[in-house]
């Protein structure tokens, strides 16, 4: 779970609050999102992972702060490595 949130709706709301209320994301928060996504991979919940990543991509790439774009790239890179190790292929993010 992410900061006590389990449901996709709660996760999305939390991510939106994070991206819209913070201009300079902390490394600890970014790592926490990576850990949450890694847990989804371990739980084989790739459908939820896909939705979470696509939502983050929309949120973070909409942001005028380039630091959020970099944060998304960092999160995605880390997740793709874990997926590659677990499934032998990467997730296609359209």
């Amino acid at each position: 779970n992410l900061a006590g949130a389990f449901e996709l709706g709660d996760i999305k709301a939390l991510l939106k609050e994070w991206v819209t209320s913070i201009s300079d994301p902390m490394e600890e928060d970014i790592l926490q999102v990576v850990r949450y996504c890694t847990d989804l991979i371990e739980d084989k919940d790739l459908e939820k992972l896909d939705l979470v990543i696509k939502y983050m991509k929309r949120l973070m790439q909409q942001s005028v702060d380039s630091v959020w774009n970099m944060a998304f790239d960092f999160i995605l890179d880390n997740i793709q490595v874990v997926i590659q190790q677990t499934y032998g292929s990467t997730l296609k993010i359209a």
Binding site: A3, G4, A5, W18, I22, M26, E28, Q32
Partner: peptide, 20 residues
């Protein structure tokens, strides 16, 4: 309450807020 590092980041704060 103490102000540990977990309390100063966004998700740490949110988690402690929800726990109350």
């Amino acid at each position: 309450t103490s102000k540990g590092s977990a309390m100063s980041n966004f998700f740490g704060k949110t988690a402690s807020r929800k726990a109350k």
